[in-house]
Simulated scan of single mutants.
Amino acid sequence: MDSPAFQKPFQKPRSVMTRFLVKSQQVGDGTDLRESELSSLDPFLMLFHFSVTKPGGFSDHPHRGCETVTYVIKGSIMCEDFTGHRCVIRTGDVQWMTAGKGIIHAEMPEGEGTHTAIQIWINLPHKDKMIEPQHKDVSSNIIPCAQKDGVEVRVLAGEAMGVSSPVYTKTPTMFLDFTMNPGARLHQKIPDSCNSFVYVIEGEGIFGSLVSSPVTAHHVLVLDHGDGLNAWNKSLNPLRFLLLGGQPLNEPVKQYRTFVMCSQSEIDKTVEDFSQFKNGFEKGKDWRSQ
């Protein structure tokens, strides 16, 4: 018998407004990158799904005005920045990095073989864009998990199946990693005020409505508003996908490369600050990652 708390359908389920494939491209030697803009999904900005082998990776580069969330799918990634923070995040670990007023960092593969991760950029409200940089490194063994009726979830942020993540985010965010066995179905509540999307990591699933066509790996599904998401795995293989939701900031967004501010004048000032190593970028003048 279905569990009413978990399997009860929604009065107004979210449907899929848009779906698109995030295509792969080679970026330098040893880096395979899938990149998608999410600028219409306030507060989300970018999605990256990358696989790297040495000597590939992402060498020293700056950020201001946003958060980057790096979730390791397989392998190990070395994260290092000019604040002196240095750590290795491994399979199932996640790092929330708040760039604030400025940071320069690098993300490189640790060890041999292929290392795979997903990174999401989330906008910061204007009041937090110039705060000091911060980090939250969350190891896999403390990320809450739950399992029911052939569905397993890892709660990186927010709540699902009665369990909540201990991670506090500057911008209210839901970040859930679902794995569904063949034949399983899911009804996941999403706060109506949140913008949300799905990214399929592997397998094939049906989202929104049973009459929808199946969606395969590496597709982004932009959801409309409603009570929550319905999903089904009618294939013969496991389905794994991320579900993200975020409270819109409803503020102007001006993005230039890795800088995210609210106006062109703020972007111009950021470019000047970075080039002259001032107003948050001072430590970058003599810093190089190891």
Results as ranks from 00 to 15, higher is better:
I190E: 05
Y199F: 07
H187N: 12
G158S: 07
F274N: 04
K278T: 15
M161Q: 12
N250Q: 09
L239H: 01
G150E: 04
A217G: 14
S265Y: 14
E251G: 12
S212N: 15
N230R: 08
D149S: 13
G246N: 00
S212T: 10
R185F: 09
L236A: 10
G226K: 10
Q247V: 06
T173M: 09
V198F: 03
F207M: 12
C262H: 13
F197H: 00
K278Y: 03
Q276F: 10
S165A: 07
H225Q: 10
E266Y: 03
F197Q: 01
Q247C: 10
A184C: 01
L249M: 13
S209L: 07
G162Y: 13
V151E: 01
P248I: 13
M261A: 14
N250L: 11
L186I: 13
G280P: 06
I267K: 04
G150D: 14
E272H: 13
L239W: 01
G205K: 00
D149W: 03
N279S: 15
S196I: 09
R185E: 15
M180W: 05
K148L: 09
V163W: 03
H219T: 06
Q255P: 06
A184E: 11
I190L: 15
D224A: 05
K254H: 15
A157W: 06
C145E: 14
S235F: 02
F241D: 10
G246H: 02
A217S: 12
G228T: 04
A146E: 04
L243Y: 07
D192H: 14
A231G: 01
N233T: 10
L242W: 00
E152D: 11
N233A: 13
L176N: 01
V151A: 01
P252V: 03
N195D: 04
V155E: 03
H219I: 06
S209G: 05
N237E: 15
E159T: 11
I201F: 00
P166H: 03
S196T: 09
M180P: 02
S165H: 08
G246S: 12
T173W: 05
L221W: 00
G208D: 02
L239G: 06
E159W: 02
N237T: 15
I190A: 03
H187A: 15
D227M: 09
E266R: 00
M174E: 00
L221A: 00
S275M: 08
L242D: 06
K234V: 05
Q188I: 07
V220I: 07
V151G: 13
A160P: 01
T216I: 08
K278A: 02
A146P: 04
P252F: 06
V253C: 07
H218D: 12
Q188G: 08
L243K: 02
T169I: 04
K170Y: 11
Y199Q: 10
E152P: 08
N181L: 14
V198W: 09
E202N: 10
S275E: 10
V253Y: 02
Y168S: 15
E204G: 04
S213V: 12
L236N: 14
G162L: 11
I267L: 13
T216S: 14
A217H: 05
S213T: 12
N233S: 11
F175E: 11
V220S: 00
A231N: 10
M161V: 11
K189L: 14
G245A: 15
T270Y: 02
F277A: 13
S213Q: 14
N181G: 07
F178G: 01
S213E: 14
G280C: 13
T270S: 05
L236C: 07
Y256V: 11
L244V: 09
S263H: 01
L239E: 04
L156H: 08
